[in-house]
Design a protein around this nucleic acid. Structure first.
Length: 361
DNA sequence: AAGCCGGGGAT
DNA sequence: ATCCCAGGCTT
């Protein structure tokens, strides 16, 4: 049996939030557009990671019209390094829809807003409650953790149906008077007090309502399903140079790192060394068989579903002709111009290496 | 329902 | 090394 909470819970929560919330760039009477941009950036992304990107993005695209008119490459350029690039592409498309079909005004109707690309249940509840006062509970990773502890609920928070499971409880607790602040307060509580490890129960404003606190089991909640470890894959990236110009490819519009640019790269098979893979790739790319790739550096990186080991090579070639036209857009660029293209985090590291070594190993 | 999609900070 | 974050889309 759950303790009867009623409005007492949100009263205590909001008192704490009013006194202890962090000063963040998207707080303090933000425009609906500012709320939207911040919520999209904060998906699966910590506040401190998104903060700088948010400031820069809002300076460059201050309103829906500015974003709608922008070139997608410009939008990606301001997102490069933040990850989950479909967020940027969807936000850009959504801004164009708002501009064309809603006279530039962000819909204050949850159903219409939810039909925009990138606007799922969480974004919709967050934006509609914070910007327009709609009484919709926003359920993210923080909220699920807080609720799991509040009720000592063993339902795994990373289960496919976790959102469906925790939403009714979140909705029942939601303050009808200040739904936007209540939603932010739940997330702020999860970020500052009810943290994944070592929750600070003595300083929790709603500890009196918490079943896990009463049972002293907060440190063992929430329950989480095991997931298998990401496999390791080996890639070779090559800094291909012809007369101080560097070859860059653009990745396909969809899928991993969609629309971003990168130094040429290929996956290494188990049967070849990195050096052999690089020579094989350069030959396939340029037809030039006498290439002697020089090892530049190694990088490690982790994506959600696999880990990456990358050997980076430096390889001058005698011609700019490409043998097998890869269908993918490419450019031969002066090193100083490469940074003007949206690069993934890994390729930003490769670029920095090239700059530091002045293009020579 | 399960898989795909980034990156970094905390532990 | 592992976890996990202001999740949504595709299949």
């Amino acid at each position: 049996m759950r303790p009867p909470l009623g409005p007492a819970f949100s009263t205590q929560l909001l008192l704490w939030f009013d006194a202890h919330q962090r000063a963040l760039p998207w707080r303090g009477a933000p425009s609906p557009y500012a709320v939207w941009v911040s919520e999209v950036m904060l998906q699966q992304t910590r506040v401190e990671s998104a903060r700088h990107y948010y400031e820069r993005f809002m300076q460059r695209f201050p309103d829906v019209a500015a974003l709608a008119q922008a070139d997608e490459q410009d939008v990606l350029q301001h997102w490069a390094g933040l990850g989950y690039y479909a967020r940027a592409r969807n936000l850009h498309r959504a801004a164009q829809i708002v501009s064309r079909e809603h006279s530039g005004k962000i819909p204050d109707d949850p159903t219409r807003f939810a039909s925009l690309p990138g606007c799922g249940p969480y974004i919709t509840a967050a934006v509609q409650s914070i910007a327009f006062g709609a009484p919709l509970a926003a359920v993210d990773g923080n909220v699920k953790r807080v609720l799991a502890r509040l009720d000592a609920d063993p339902f795994p928070v990373n289960h496919t149906r976790a959102h469906r499971h925790y939403l009714p409880r979140a909705q029942e607790l939601l303050s009808p008077h200040r739904p936007g602040d209540h939603n932010q307060a739940m997330m702020e509580l999860g970020a500052l007090i009810c943290t994944p490890r070592n929750p600070d129960c003595p300083r929790c404003p709603v500890a009196a309502f918490c079943t896990a606190r009463a049972q002293d089991t907060a440190h063992r909640l929430p329950v989480r399903e095991k997931k298998q470890r990401a496999p390791l894959r080996h890639f070779v990236s090559v800094i291909l140079v012809h007369r101080r110009r560097y070859l860059l490819f653009q990745r396909p519009a969809k899928g991993l790192l969609g629309g971003l640019w990168e130094f040429p790269s290929t996956e290494r098979t188990a049967q070849e060394t990195a050096q052999e893979a690089c020579a094989r790739y350069v030959h396939a790319l340029t037809g030039h068989s006498g290439a002697v790739p020089q090892h530049a550096t190694q990088l490690q990186h982790a994506y959600t579903h696999f880990r990456l080991h990358i050997d980076v090579y430096y390889c001058p070639v005698p011609s700019r002709a490409l043998q097998a036209p890869t269908q993918l857009p490419h450019r031969w660029l002066p090193l100083d111009d490469v940074a003007d293209f949206p690069l993934s985090s890994v390729n930003q590291k490769i670029l920095r290496w090239a700059q530091q070594h002045n293009a020579r190993p």
